[in-house]
């Protein structure tokens, strides 16, 4: 030790502190569980790969508005009316805006301006999942793209990556903009990203997504990997469109025009 200068000592100390810090960090990250055990609800809706077919010809203005209202109020989505900061899970967009690659300049205004329901496409090859640096956005065992709000750092890489504009960032504290807070569902904090979750909290307990229930039959929800499911049959029998199918994201929301 006699040869150890103060400088060397400090250097060694610093290295030791970094090592110790790393050890503590790794330990907290994979700490073991405590208490009892966990299981899925026996009533959970079963599917390998949830998908959705939206038949716009069957969708009335009334039931569409009911869907938006129900979704946003159940999920405590704030009603912020500036376009810059707005948060939305489900909304309307015209054909021309939604199907950028399937339109042309002479398309009749009748079709161009027809309004379509817009939500997260729960892609099979999701770009948002690929770019997320913390796995806050992930795909669950039923092919639903979910967000772990506890983990989201708000880097907004997923927003730049999403080809569908499905994601909203909480530019401000959302609570003052929620007319009536639903006590059974959390709100979000400012500084995290959010989007439609295919009502994962309802699927887990054996209920269909809210918009599906309120669409009066315009939305069919089911397993697109199962050829016998309602969605697969609709896709087989009708002409359907996907948004920006050329990007390879394999979106799972299909539209019957």
């Amino acid at each position: 030790m006699e040869n150890m200068s103060r400088r060397k000592f400090l250097k060694l100390g610093g290295a030791a502190a970094v090592g110790l810090g790393a050890a503590v960090v790794t330990k907290t990250a994979d700490a073991a569980q405590i208490g009892g055990s966990y299981q899925k609800d026996s009533a959970r809706m079963q599917a390998k790969n949830w998908g959705m077919v939206i038949d716009m010809s069957k969708f009335s203005e009334e039931s569409f508005n009911a869907c938006v209202e129900a979704c946003h109020s159940f999920h405590n989505v704030p009603n912020i009316d500036t376009k810059k900061d707005e948060v939305k899970w489900i909304w309307k967009q015209t054909y021309e805006q939604l199907f950028l690659d399937e339109t042309h300049e002479h398309l009749s205004a009748k079709y161009k301006d027809q309004e379509f329901m817009t939500i997260c496409n729960h892609c099979q090859e999701p770009v948002c999942v690929r770019v997320c640096p913390t796995k806050a956005t992930f795909k669950n065992d039923q092919g639903v793209i979910l967000m772990d709000m506890h983990r989201c750092i708000g880097c907004r890489n997923c927003m730049a990556a999403c080809p569908y504009g499905a994601r909203s960032f909480n530019f401000k504290d959302p609570r003052p903009y929620i007319e009536e807070i639903n006590p059974t569902y959390p709100t979000r904090m400012k500084g995290v990203v959010e989007k439609c979750n295919f009502c994962a909290e309802r699927l887990a307990l054996g209920q269909l997504p809210l918009c599906v229930e309120l669409s009066n039959g315009a939305i069919t929800f089911g397993d697109i990997d199962d050829p016998q499911s309602g969605v697969s049959k609709l896709i087989a029998e009708n002409f359907t469109l996907q948004r920006r199918a050329n990007l390879g994201t394999k979106p799972k929301v299909y539209y019957i025009v």
Binding site: A29, P133, T134, I153, G154, C155, R156
Partner: peptide, 14 residues
């Protein structure tokens, strides 16, 4: 640029 900087180290944790 990070919206929730107190969770920043999630990048290394996960």
């Amino acid at each position: 640029d990070i919206g929730s900087p107190m969770k920043l180290f999630n990048v290394y944790l996960y």
